[in-house]
Design a binder for these strands. Sequence first.
RNA 1: GGAGCGUUGGUAAAUCGGUUAAUACACCUCCCUUUCACGGAGGAAUGACGGGUUCGACUCCCGUACGCUCUACCA
Length: 509
Amino acid sequence: MTDTAINKKVRVRFAPSPTGGLHLGGVRTVLFNYLFAKQHGGDFIVRIEDTDQTRFVEGAEDYILETLAWCGLVPDESPLHGGPFAPYRQSERKPMYKEYADRLLAEGKAYYAFDTAEELDAKRKEISNFQYSHATRGLMKNSLTLTIDETEHLLNSGAPYVIRILLPENQEVTFTDLIRGEITFNTNQVDDKVLLKADGMPTYHLAVVVDDYKMQITHAFRGEEWLPSAPVHVLLWKYLFGLENMPQWAHLPLILKPDGNGKLSKRDGDRLGFPTFALDWVDPKTNEVTIGFRERGFLPEAFVNMLAALGWNDGTGQEVFSLEELVAKFSIDRVHKGGAKFDYEKAKWYNQEWLKHLPVSRYAGLVKALFEKQNIAIDDNKGFERVLELIKERCVLLNDFVEQSSFFFKQPDTIDIASIKPKWDEKKNLFFVELLRAYELSTLWEAADLEVEFKESAAAHQLKPGELMLPFRIMLVGGKFGPGVFEIAEILGKAETVSRIKNVLGMLE
RNA sequence: GGAGCGUUGGUAAAUCGGUUAAUACACCUCCCUUUCACGGAGGAAUGACGGGUUCGACUCCCGUACGCUCUACCA
């Protein structure tokens, strides 16, 4: 790092294009950006790269910002939050890019190209592995092959054109990647990328360089898929703003699909049954819903933690980190080079850990909403939290709380009578009838007392408590699950406990 | 095809040349729990391959294989 870089305020940006939901990989890129910025007391900027009008999707920008808000990764500057470098949408910055393309043109570092899509296609068919580069640009229709007059004429006649960068021949372009070290490309291997499209919009390549400069970005983190086009960006920096002002690059490893090979995609999630988006995403065109981690019952703390662990660790073996801890401990040189396969089981484990670590009051409201969705009203908040405390260790996702504890708030929907019946006899029936009487008369209603009474009664009937506990449990909860039976009975209260025993006794007759 | 990047158990991964290669998830066995979990004890399972460098290599170098990404007027 140079001295100037040390003194400069750290500024990073996440630059998504609003073409749909934001997937795991995107959120992780945000996270690493955010952690780095906050660790250095810097700024985290969100810039919307909406230069491709054909792929623009309504609502995608809001969705992206909402995702960040849920994760707690709040930008310092964005189209929503504003900031000193506004506007933060590239479509609103359109005039700026043209100016730089013109400068490149004037300096002979870029040229006009008039080839139509059909002509390009034809060339691609004619020449295998065609690239618009040093080897082929002489064959094409551009200001390099046309005379000045011809070019002028085409321009004046309103013919559509693009502006392409003119890559130098056989030159080594080297830059340092914070994660991978020194990386070198030969310009002969790179093509003359389009900088400005026929509609006047810049491509990513021009826009990213211009905006990173104008927004004073010091560190640029992005997915590994950008590596092959990095030399174009480096060259653009050299031509336009000087290499000394170029941000430090870091190309993040990809998140891979759990089975097979390749980048994790939304499709993989659909196919394998796990979310790949943070929040539910509804495609505005097809109305197709893609499920999100939030709706699946993940806590944002767990989601962020899990994402951080995908490609980074602090070397100590610690796995559970709060966002604050991540900010403190994150380091770019501990980020892996290789991609990691996404493991949904492990993701769930993180949620389970967070469910255990966080006080239930932190998520009681969320669980309550889930209950209300099932038409189960919760009016006693304190009692509710007590129940959550009792069962939280058997829950992995927030939704599990409903399954695991709805019997506290309403009669079980189904009673697993089949598990009682085979071993049911008159002796047991008698025991429960008597237990019922004893419980109805009891003045104390605490788990310990109920258990003593239960066991004494069992002894009196010459029955093993073990044979009776399961039927009792099923009477109260409907199935073979849940916390200790007597604790359940205590919380349920006398009236409800008695009523449930009676109910099942009736079913067994 | 080309270029770049990558490769430690099934998965995520520690190790920054030095005894039997951590740990977590998943799996198996057992204990605890007269339910389900949690928790505890244990088990099986790994350095792609081939060359170097070195007293010594998972670690450094070279090659091979394999994989990924890119190769759009998409980002």
